[in-house]
Amino acid sequence: MMRRFFAPLLAVGVLASGAARAEDTLSPLHFQSQGWSGTIDKAAAQRGFAVYEGVCASCHSLHGLHYRDLEGLGLTPAQVAGIAANVRLANGQPATLNSRFKTPGAISMGGATPPDLSNIVAQRPGGTRYVYDFLTGFGPPPAGVSLLPGHFYNAVFPGGQVSMPAVLRDNAVTYADGAKASTAQEAADVAEFLTWASDPNLSARHAVGLRAVLFFAFLTIVALLVKRRIWREEG
């Protein structure tokens, strides 16, 4: 019954999202993962993984993740196996589905160690937006600000100086789905990818939570009515 009712709606929804394939998440900037009922935007997160793999992974580890976890982004096992096979681990062997994400060699950027990104979104207030703002926050220092050696100006980073240079630029990666790889698009996509990396169960949690809340709200009302009736009759 429910399925019969919702199937046409679902079909319309799929068609609509298909028509809006070149979906614009930048004007205005929004992330599908945000909000109380947010879900991971898998297309954006897949693009974000391409950005991570192409740009971030040379310095930042993602120790909490295994390559098999990428199936959670909607990639097939064969696609993930292909991705893993292209990665040479430290021992020279190609990665497999059950390998952890490759850890880059020890790096020091002017004395700073690039942080692990597994939980970066959970580790910063407003994490998703922070990642985007940070990655697009680089620029020339304002007048009167002199930078420490080996540091770069970033308007969002506490203190305004960071050891990481601006690494995103237009067309730093080529997107498989044909989206235009502007700097802002890359930053937004990698923010959505890292949101998923920090909380891979976000979509499931919201779905399960909503169903449980609806069920128990209904059950609570029924139980209260039953209790009132019994207490009126017996009490």
Binding site: V208, A212, V213, F216, T220, A223
Partner: peptide, 17 residues
Amino acid sequence: FAALAGLALVFSLLLGF
């Protein structure tokens, strides 16, 4: 039963969101 149902409601609100 009603109290437990109410607790489950609060529990799932916190768990989900």
